[in-house]
Amino acid sequence: MKKNNKIQAVFLDRDGTIGGDDTIHYPGEFRLFPGVKENIRKLQEKGIKVFAFTNQPGIAKGLTTKTAFIHELLSFGFDQGYICPHAPEAECKCRKPNTEMLQQAAEDYKLSLARTVVIGDRWSDMVAASKVGAMKILVKTGAGEQTLKEHQERLKDIELDKVVEGIEEAMNVIHREYT
């Protein structure tokens, strides 16, 4: 993406990227990293949509509901939350690294996915972003360090745009280079 090409949207993974760690924390237990709400608001003030996109297999297991996740994500300031509620073995089209959540957002909000940024901590976030031509920022929080060490084979054909320490640094990159 060219530096002068303003982005239309940012997609943020949930667990390990905007808060929590490399495990799933259900709504009510999840804690955001400092500055996330403020950075979401700053992007929105610049006319950029901010979406959560997350795999949440606990929904299929009956451990929580999609509604609970959506309510929580909206309370954080997201414009919308896109959630895959399926278990990995379901082989659905929405579970990352598949792209249905990104494509649905593009349809819902008339976005060019080439003018979006995906921020996440897992290889599946980066593969999904790569498939749609989005900018890719990997954070080292959550499963990010593990992704860099153990999933090189899955990332071998993907050029990450940035690898950063955490969400605050990722947001600074976006504010500085793409808004």
Rank of each mutant, 00 (worst) to 15 (best):
P57N: 07
I18R: 14
G20W: 06
K149H: 10
L74P: 05
Q152Y: 01
R31W: 04
N39R: 15
F76P: 07
H25A: 08
N39H: 14
D161V: 02
N5G: 00
G142W: 00
E107Q: 15
G166Q: 08
I119T: 04
I167T: 08
Y178C: 11
R115V: 00
T64E: 03
P57T: 04
S75R: 07
R31G: 00
G120K: 12
L148Y: 02
M126C: 04
G133D: 06
L73V: 04
D161T: 10
C92M: 04
R176M: 05
T17K: 00
W123N: 03
P27Q: 11
A60S: 15
K93Y: 10
T54W: 09
E29K: 14
G19Y: 02
P34T: 01
L102P: 11
E107I: 07
H25D: 07
I137V: 13
T179Y: 15
P97Q: 00
E159N: 09
G62Q: 06
L102G: 09
A106M: 09
Q44H: 01
P97V: 08
L138M: 08
T99Y: 01
M135A: 11
G166I: 05
T99I: 15
F30L: 10
Y109S: 10
E72A: 13
G47E: 08
G28F: 12
C94V: 01
P97E: 02
N5L: 15
E29D: 15
C84A: 06
L160A: 06
P97N: 07
K162M: 05
E159S: 12
L155M: 08
L102Q: 05
I70P: 02
P88Q: 07
I48C: 11
G144F: 02
F69A: 02
L74F: 08
K37Y: 08
T64H: 11
S124V: 10
Y26I: 13
I24G: 01
R41I: 08
C94W: 00
I83F: 11
L160M: 10
T64K: 11
E159D: 07
A106Q: 08
E100M: 11
M171E: 04
L160K: 12
I59G: 13
I7N: 02
F78M: 08
M171C: 11
H25V: 07
S112V: 09
E38T: 13
Y82I: 04
G81R: 09
I167H: 03
